[in-house]
């Protein structure tokens, strides 16, 4: 099994007619994802290489029965696009858009939490979700993943998500689902959401978790793992050498006021019984050993 998506997930792409939307939307479709439509206001009735385009998410949902949306629109329009999808009844939204203002992100998160509790937002500023052989929504290259499980991956950073997939696939260890939650300050989906779902998923036998400096989501995840996760977890935290007060690329990756250091996160995870690796390769090696012993 997989988490959040599977081979039956019907996806629309908001922004399908843009260059990024077209490239990644069609790439996801070529991977085997059921990409059933696109949404671009004013372009309803047209199509992108056979994928029908609608004026609104509501129209797209009515015509295709889509349950998930992939949002690839510029930061100015992304908050509205997310809320439009939620209002149209979409249950799972992946937003890869980078550089959404923090105020907009906080607003969208709270509107979803209050008015659309049944909708899950992944991102913004994330690589998306990939369940090898079943469904790929986002910008992750499908060929670095290996189907069949038993490892679930959750990661904050995009390229480190690829690195994680690569470390496992090269060693012949497959994945159930790989979720990139994104490096922004207010992510729609957190480590805990993914850990809880992986714990419930019978095919996932172990979890690889890649975090980074900033915020306290990894510490919260550690507390959650201690109480609720029975499966082995291997983690790696990026940014041990990051100087305080400097944003390391991601808006969320900053050590400020002594909070959010890599060491504090590693300590919390180790204390919760997680195998803490010093680098991505070591994390992969530890996971391979765990999988061999299953």
């Amino acid at each position: 099994m997989s988490i959040f998506v599977d081979e039956n997930t019907k996806v629309i792409v908001q922004g399908l007619t843009g260059s990024q939307g077209k490239f990644h939307g069609l790439r996801n479709k070529a991977y085997g994802t059921k990409v059933v439509g696109g949404v671009t206001p004013g372009k309803g009735g047209t199509d992108v290489e056979g994928v029908p385009v609608f004026d609104s998410v509501q129209d797209a949902v009515a015509a295709t029965g889509a349950t998930a949306s992939f949002i690839v629109v510029p930061p100015k329009f992304a908050p509205e696009a997310i809320l439009e999808a939620a209002a149209a009844g979409i249950g799972f939204i992946v937003c890869i858009t980078e550089y959404i203002p923090a105020k907009d992100e906080a607003m969208v998160f709270n509107v979803l939490r209050r008015n659309y509790p049944g909708t899950r937002l992944l991102g913004p500023n994330c690589p998306g979700i990939l369940s090898p052989g079943k469904c790929n929504i986002g910008i992750t290259s499908g060929d670095i993943a290996l189907a069949g499980g038993p490892v679930g991956i959750v990661s904050r950073s995009g390229t480190l998500t690829y690195q994680a997939l690569n470390e496992l696939s090269l060693k012949g260890v497959g994945q159930t689902t790989c979720v990139g939650i994104g490096g922004d300050p207010v992510p729609g989906t957190t480590f805990i959401d993914c850990l809880a779902a992986f714990e419930q998923d019978p095919e996932t036998k172990a979890v690889l978790m890649f975090g980074e400096i900033g915020g306290s989501d990894e510490e919260k995840a550690a507390a959650f793992i201690k109480e609720n996760v029975t499966k082995p977890v291997v983690s790696y935290i990026a940014g041990v050498t990051a100087p305080p007060g400097k944003k390391m690329g991601h808006a969320g990756a900053i050590v400020s006021g002594g909070m959010g250091t890599a060491q504090a996160k590693m300590d919390a995870l180790a204390e919760a019984g997680v195998h803490v690796a010093r680098n991505p390769t070591e994390a992969g090696e530890i996971m391979v050993d765990i999988v061999k012993g299953l």
Binding site: S155, R156, S157, G158, T159, L160, T161, Q163, G183, F210, E212, I213, Y236, A238, G239, V240, T241, A242, M248, G249, H250, A253, A262, R278, N279, P280
Partner: peptide
């Protein structure tokens, strides 16, 4: 490096 996470990780590994 490409990507903030990979860049941070590269710093760490160089240090290690």
């Amino acid at each position: 490096a490409n990507g903030a996470g990979l860049a941070m990780s590269t710093l760490d590994v160089v240090n290690q």
